[in-house]
Amino acid sequence: MAVDAHDAAASAPGMPQLDFSTFPNQIFWLVVTIVVIYLILSRVALPRIGAVLAERQGTITNDIAAAEDLKRQAAAAEDAYNKALADARAEAQAIAAEARAEIMADLADATAKADAEISAKAAESAARIDEIRAGALEAVEAVARDTAAEIVATLAPTASDDASIAAAVTARVKG
């Protein structure tokens, strides 16, 4: 009877899922499988993977901290560099200003000296020009007197009076 039923189940498209005679077998092996997988996972796999992940997290955290530190050091170094650069620039400016002042002083000195020399030379030249002018005036007077005496002698040979001619020429030249 049971055989018949089973026969019908096997030949007709029945459901092996509802064949209760196989249930103890399936349940037994399922329990075995689940227990084995649970032991594998809880004893070996999960602690190991958890440890690896934790270790990686730690490494990453440490690396980030180290990177942060290095970044801070780099920033400090940059600050120091900038400060040194600013100092050097300021010093350079000071030196340049000093040099400029020195040069200006030298220049002023030289200019003053040159001015003094020039004015001395100019004074000397002016004295000589005065001298030459005085000489020239005298020569003009003498020539004028001679010329006047010659003219008077030529025009009125009788009325030649050297003294009066000289006085008249002098008065004219001076006037």
Partner: peptide, 17 residues
Amino acid sequence: ISFYTITNVTLWMMLAI
């Protein structure tokens, strides 16, 4: 098929393990 019989269920569950 008693509960401990090694069946195709056993085989494929072991393969899952």
